[in-house]
Amino acid sequence: MQPLRLSGHPRCIADTALVLASGLSDFVRGVVRPVDGGLMLHRNSRSSAEG
């Protein structure tokens, strides 16, 4: 897996906040949602492959 290789913009954070504040996220409970373009996922997959 590769991160998106895009620079994040304040709009990305705002869009995520709007979705979470809307009815579209009624089923989302107690989860950390990183808005990092997949960087955290990439780091986790790389470290699990090494270990």
Rank of each mutant, 00 (worst) to 15 (best):
V28Q: 09
V19M: 11
R5P: 01
M40A: 12
A17N: 07
V35A: 04
P34D: 03
G23L: 01
R43V: 13
A49M: 02
S45E: 10
N44C: 12
V31F: 06
S47F: 02
R11M: 13
V28P: 03
A49N: 04
S25W: 03
A21F: 00
S48F: 05
R29N: 08
C12I: 06
D15T: 15
G8P: 03
P10H: 01
A17W: 01
L24T: 02
G38W: 02
F27K: 13
L39G: 05
G8Q: 06
V32T: 09
S22P: 03
D36P: 05
E50G: 12
M1D: 09
L24K: 08
T16L: 06
L4C: 11
I13W: 09
S25F: 00
G38Q: 07
G23M: 06
L6A: 07
R46C: 09
G8D: 01
R43T: 14
P3K: 01
G51Y: 00
P10E: 06
G30R: 03
L41P: 06
D36E: 07
S45V: 14
V32E: 12
N44Q: 14
V28G: 01
G37V: 03
H9G: 02
R29Q: 07
L20M: 09
P34Q: 05
R46M: 11
L39D: 04
V28M: 06
R46L: 14
V32L: 01
P10R: 10
A14G: 09
Q2M: 08
E50N: 05
L39A: 08
V28A: 13
Q2T: 15
A17V: 15
F27Y: 10
L18S: 14
S48M: 13
V28E: 09
H42Y: 06
L41K: 02
I13N: 00
S25H: 02
P3E: 08
I13Y: 12
S22K: 06
R11D: 13
L39W: 04
P10L: 04
M1C: 06
C12A: 07
G30L: 09
V19G: 00
E50F: 10
A17S: 04
M1T: 07
L4Y: 10
M40G: 13
R5D: 09
R11F: 14
P10D: 03
H42P: 13
E50D: 15
R11Q: 15
A49Q: 11
P34F: 03
L6I: 15
I13H: 04
